[in-house]
Structure formats: structure tokens, C-alpha cells
Simulated scan of single mutants.
Amino acid sequence: MRIDDVIYFFNDFRPYYYRVLAVIGVLSNVVAIVTLSRGRCGLSECVTWYLEAMAVADLLVVVFQVILIRIYLIYYTPECNIIHTMGYVSVACSVWLTVAFTLDRTVAICFQKLKTRYCTEKGAATVIAVVSVLSVLTNIPWYFTYKIHICWASIEFVYSPVWAAFDWGHRILTPVVPFVLILLLNAITVRHILMAGVVRRKLRGQRNGEGKDDPEMKNRRRSIILLFAISASFILLWMTRVVILAIEQITVQYFLMTASKLVGDYLGEMLQLFSSCTNMFIYAVTQRKFREEVINTVKYPFTAILKSSAESWKI
């Protein structure tokens, strides 16, 4: 298959892909927000805060990056600068909240003394607020990079060394640095788990594969499955985007558009945006109580309608 045929395929496929992604993204994140807000999922308040914040950020990514920018194509409108800026803000917030959640779970698992001070509801709320504010502040300059009413990068942005430095810093800050941090934090967590598991089996005198019924190990295993699933999803779906950005930085080909680079950009963009729709399904697969609450949340409107109809018939 020629590269031109691949490009034509992506050009035909992407509009349908983004429409399906918008439906899945909005529904999944809204269900996750509603389910988590009920507080019946068996998760700690700290974890619930992070997961809710991540769901809200992912929902904003779907709204701004998918629906407004890629489906409705909000060009030649006075609001296009604001929408593009909010698109960058939502992505930064989603990415760095994933880092914050990973750090919180690493502290909870590996640093017991720091856990009592950091892994709290107040601590989670503070971190979420800081990440949100910094995401807004660091992306405000994007508002000034587009020509008003056109939403194309201005000549000053393309050729100015100041804007080039800002663009370079943005690419490093999101997502290269978070990508590396998540890998590092998970490596620390895995190393601690392996060492702690060996020590615990020795203390209990359970060697050679024994001790599978250790309740402490079971609780710890359940608590880290969610962390690793979210981290793995982020790494896999962002990997293409990170590799392409790295190649652009090394070869200094920010605006040179070749056929192969165009295909890579399409694929990386599609996978990156898909990452904003996966967390709810990860929660459902890895957390039994969350799965049960999702079913109750989805059933609630129908049961309420049936109950209301039954009462009206009695009247």
C-alpha cells in the first residue's frame, strides 16, 4: 500500500473516528464522574478525588479537542483562540493529574511515613487545585499565537525565537516530562512491591510459592492494579505522540510536513485523544465495587421512570 493511500484512508476515517470518540468519551466520563461522586466504590477519599478530577479533565479534552476543534472545526470564529487555548489547558491538566495520581499511589505504597501527611483528602484537593491553576497559567500564551478570527498560527509565532522556545518548552513539559515521570514512579513502586513481598513471605515463613492467601498481599495487589492499569494505558496511548515529538525536536522539523510525518501525526493524535476515554473502563475492569455502582448509575434513570410511571398509574 502506498503512503498516499494511507493518507487518503486516514482523511476519510478520521471524521467518523472522532464522532464515535466524542460519544464514547462524553458518556464514559460523565458516568465515571456521577458514579465516583456517590462515594460508594470502596475507594479512599483521596483516590476518589483524583479519579473524579481526572474524569473531569478528560471530559474537557473530549469537549474542546474532539468536539469543538476536530468535529465542528471552529475556524473563523471570534472564540477560536479561547477554544484552542482551553484545548491545551485540558490536555495539560489531564496529563499532569495522571502524574499526580501516580505520585500519590507511589507515596502510599512506598513511603509510609509520608503517606499520613500527603495521601489525604485535603492533600489531594490541594494538588488538584495547584495542577489546574498551573495548567491554565502555562498555556495562556497559546491565546496569542493564533490570528484572531482565523485560528492559524501567526507569522510571528512561526519565525520568532521566543515563540519557538515556548513551543519547544511546551512539547517537553507536556507530555515528555510526565511520560518519563510516570515510568520512573512506576519503576520505584514495582521495586518496592517486589522487595516488600519477599520480606513479608520470609517473615511469615511462607516460601516456595506458599502464602497465596495472605490478606495483606491481596489488599496491596488490588490497590496497585488500578495504578498500573492507568499508567500502562497512558504510556501506550501517548507513546506514538511522544516519539514523534522527540523526532521533531532532534531533527528540528516542527513545520516540515512529509507524508510519513503526516501519518505519524494522525496516528499519534488519534491515540492520544483516545486516552481520554479509557479510564472509566479501566475502573470498571479493575474495581468490582465501581463496576457494580456503574450498573446502578446506568439503571437509575430507567428505574426512576418506571417507578414514576407505576405511581402515576396508581393515582
Rank of each mutant, 00 (worst) to 15 (best):
F228T: 11
S28V: 04
Q272H: 12
Q112N: 15
P215M: 08
V91D: 05
Y266L: 08
K218F: 15
V127Q: 00
Y75I: 12
S223D: 13
L68Q: 03
Q249W: 10
R222P: 05
K261L: 13
T77M: 14
Y88I: 06
R2L: 13
I250W: 10
W96H: 13
Q112C: 14
N29K: 02
I235L: 10
C277D: 06
F10I: 07
V107M: 06
N219C: 11
V26N: 03
C46N: 10
V242L: 12
K113I: 07
G25P: 00
P301E: 08
F228E: 11
L51H: 03
A55E: 06
T126C: 11
R105M: 12
I148K: 11
G25C: 04
R207P: 09
T116D: 08
K147N: 13
F144S: 11
I225A: 04
R291P: 05
Y283A: 06
F144T: 04
K113E: 15
T278Y: 10
A108K: 01
V30K: 01
F101K: 14
V199N: 09
S223V: 03
Q206Y: 00
T85K: 06
T106M: 11
K299F: 09
Q206M: 14
V62N: 04
A304W: 13
V130I: 05
Y17G: 03
L183H: 10
R117M: 12
L185N: 04
Y76D: 14
I235C: 01
T251M: 08
R220E: 14
R200Q: 15
D5H: 05
F13K: 00
R191L: 11
R19S: 01
V56H: 03
V127F: 00
V177P: 07
L43G: 04
T286R: 05
L36W: 05
S132H: 00
T138E: 03
Y18R: 02
V252W: 14
E293I: 01
R70C: 03
E121Y: 14
P215Q: 09
I69K: 08
C80D: 04
V30T: 03
Y300L: 13
L73P: 08
Y266F: 15
I244E: 12
A129V: 01
K289F: 06
I244A: 09
V131C: 02
P175T: 14
R38V: 01
D167P: 02
A229Y: 04
T98C: 10
D4Q: 00
T278I: 06
L262G: 03
V31A: 13
R14Y: 05
T174I: 02
Y8D: 14
R105A: 07
Y300M: 14
V91F: 07
G169D: 02
W168F: 15
E269Y: 11
L181Q: 10
V34G: 00
Y159W: 09
I82C: 13
V26T: 03
A22M: 01
H149Q: 09
A53Y: 00
T303I: 12
